[in-house]
């Protein structure tokens, strides 16, 4: 399976955010945040609810625009691009609440993903049917590899809306892998997932990272984030309040105060 490298683009997945700002009226959802998700590393983004993490995620992925600041992927500006342009540049995301194509099978969910499919052009399905069929066969093979890698073979032909929430998280990860992305943004991959499936998700992320894939992960599960991430960025009230090695960062008093409200200390 060739999911962890991006030979087509040659990108490493280094994501750099500089002075990102986004306000909704008088609320500064993201207020001058800067950090870098280094290539080939797993960077965690944590913070209490309302810290601005998902807003920042949406801005990076092109779903929302920043008021100011820059977002670059391997030195190329991707801030302000539309979601499909951001995707084409090598960045793929998953969602906090899974968004599978519910009435399509898991396999079809994956087959949708690859870009520039000949059969996506209407007329090619008549005048270029041979080429479309060949490409479909190749994509199907790749999709089955990804499905097996994500432990989804048993549900490959089931509608994605009928499988468990945890499996849907895996489908989102699998969809992301179909794109051979340079970097994957995971929005709470562990939320609402049973422990067995969570182990599978973690194993797969670690394996993909070992192969060179870059990750930026929002997560509330501190055990997961400290065991998984190489570095951690903490946001609160729209601002970055800490950055560094996970175990050092979460031990800081200001982080405990902001993120855990001091209760866990």
């Amino acid at each position: 399976m060739q999911t962890a490298q991006t030979p087509e683009t040659g990108k490493t997945g280094r994501l750099e955010i500089r002075d990102a700002r986004k306000a909704f009226g008088s609320v500064r959802a993201v207020d001058g945040v800067s950090f870098t998700a280094e290539a080939g590393r797993i960077t965690g983004l944590v913070g209490p609810n309302g810290a601005g993490k998902t807003t920042l995620f949406n801005a990076i992925a092109g779903e929302a625009s920043l008021d100011s600041g820059t977002v670059t992927l391997d030195g190329t500006q991707i801030g302000g691009l539309s979601p499909h342009e951001v995707f084409s540049s090598g960045l793929t995301r998953t969602f906090q609440i899974p968004r599978p194509f519910a009435r399509m099978t898991v396999l079809e969910n994956l087959l949708v993903v690859p870009e520039r499919q000949a059969g996506e052009r209407f007329w090619n399905n008549w005048i270029g049917r041979g080429r479309v069929s060949r490409q479909e066969a190749e994509l199907r093979e790749k999709a089955h590899d990804v499905i097996a890698f994500c432990n989804l073979s048993a549900v490959a032909m089931q509608p994605a809306g009928s499988i468990s929430g945890g499996q849907q998280k895996l489908v989102e990860l699998a969809r992301a892998l179909m794109a051979d992305p340079a970097i994957v943004l995971l929005d709470e991959p562990g939320a609402g997932v049973n422990p067995a499936l969570l182990d599978t998700i973690i194993e797969r992320i670690v394996e993909l990272n070992r192969r060179g894939m870059t990750f930026l992960i929002i997560e509330h599960n501190m055990d997961l984030i400290t065991s998984l991430c190489d570095s951690l960025v903490v946001m609160a009230a729209g601002r970055k309040i800490a950055e560094g090695k996970p175990r050092e960062v979460i031990a800081r008093d200001d982080v405990v105060e902001a993120y855990l409200g001091g209760a866990a200390a």
């Binding site: 194509f101 519910a102 949708v112």
Partner: peptide, 16 residues
């Protein structure tokens, strides 16, 4: 079908 099922997801997967 992908557009029918979830436009946001389809857009995030590079679809116009």
């Amino acid at each position: 079908n992908a557009v029918r099922e979830d436009e946001v997801a389809a857009r995030s997967l590079g679809k116009n």
